[in-house]
Design a protein around this nucleic acid. Sequence first.
RNA 1: GGCGACAUGGCCAAGUGGUAAGGCGGAAGUCUGCAAAACUUCUACUCCCCAGUUCGAAUCUGGGUGUCGCCUCCA
Length: 511
Amino acid sequence: MLPSLQFYNSLTRTTEPFQPIEAPTVKLYVCGPTVYDFPHLGHARCYMSWDVLVRTLMLFGYTVTYVRNITDVDDKILARAEAQSTTPEAVAELNTQRFHEDMQALNTLSPTVEPKATDHIKGEHGMFAMIETLIAKKHAYVTATGDVNFETATMADYGKLSKRPPEAVQAGARVSVDADKRHPSDFALWKANPEDSYAWNPPEGLAFQGVKRGRPGWHIECSSMIRTVLGETIDIHAGGADLIFPHHENEIAQSECCSGKTPFVRTWMHNGFVNVDGEKMSKSLGNFSTIRDLLEHYPANTLRYFILTNHYRMPVDFTPEALDAAHNWSVKFSIFMTQLLPTFPAMAETLPAWEDETARALLQSQLPEFLEALASDLNTPRALASVNGLVKQLRKAETVTEKQSLLTVLLIALQVLGFRVADFLQIDTENGEQQSNRPTLDEFISAFSTALSAEQVALFQTAEAWESGVLALRAEAKRAKNWALADAIRSGVEKLGGAMTDTPQGSSISW
RNA sequence: GGCGACAUGGCCAAGUGGUAAGGCGGAAGUCUGCAAAACUUCUACUCCCCAGUUCGAAUCUGGGUGUCGCCUCCA
């Protein structure tokens, strides 16, 4: 028996057994990015966490309809377009591409469907259609300026997700008072801005009621895309913890009042935030790192390990020390894999499938604690602990058969967690620094001038020749048991920032 | 003011009633010409504080202290 999947549901604030409406299909919606800038570490955490959710669901035999949107209409996109004298469409397109590149670099699975907000303004379940229904059902009203607001007072259980009834919002000190709102907690479904070029004309029915040309409010897009792509009730809706209020709260209000069906979402899942030195990482504080900056210094596997050593609901404090600790693990693990994998070329070539019946059965018999950890609300720290235990076992394994069987399990587990196995084999070329770190010809010459004779120095004309030449000279020195020269050559390499490692098969240099 | 989260060894981090996972770092030893890696062993009588419930609590209850988040765009 597979352990039963349990997820923490933000709506009920308890951990519940997971049961999709139409097993084996799981309808999953993840709030995607607003594409106005490079994705940052916070996005990496969020989307890697949900990546593991998708992989876990697949491992447990579900077919996941994974929908993750692109928010391509938003004030920040408009502001960026203006600042860069370009169009909002161009800003959105550029940053969507960056997002895709980064997600791929982080080895996250692509969503089944990736809807764009602007493609869902019109249409049968588009934003206009929903707005029209909400007005007809008296849940929304048109203002004098041509906006449409949702009237929170018309929903009896408004605030059930964030436990924040309208009265509480009213008491909040920082809620801006909008004269057009009947209640401070009412929120915009449609924002009129007739003068702006990036705007949509309402259909006749809405125009007749006074709705003016403009653009959608922030929350309606997700409701509309979910309705269109997945339907009125979905299994899981996931996103960052900061979206609980107001975004997800308002999604619930719109969707449930529009369809008249409850619940709109059966399980709400939210990931914790990335902090820097104990403070939330945010654009306004300027303390964020972009994914590509980080990938310049650390391979994707290191970032993934760093993220997965924390449970997804806990805040993560981002410090150089913590990332270095993760990287040290990565390096050690890479060395291990580099030594082990080549002895099983067939497996390295074609990795075992990780999401099928066979993989499941293998994990269940060989590494049950791994499955249990993931089933317990995606406890990736515990899953990683079981992987480490497996590695220890594998290191001690003596027979080829034993090694092969343990390695199969390991390769499956790594893939379930979203590690890119091939990257572990090329960590030195993968950390992006080999270009800048590899010494030049002059640097080689000056580093070895004391260790080598003038004739030896003159032998090599290029940096590449130096590298292989140095290895050859050192091999010769070792053969002659000239330890002084062998050590001098190694310290020369170290002086250049490299590391020379001896193995029974010979020496190698990593930069 | 309202809602919420978290406090575990040098650092990171699991554990939600049965006597402290895992990683990083550190120490000693084995191995190797020396390094590196690996291997072996060690590295929290104790889980922010106080009181209570219990045969038994890091885990439950009450109180306190501290840190952080949301309530405004944010993953």
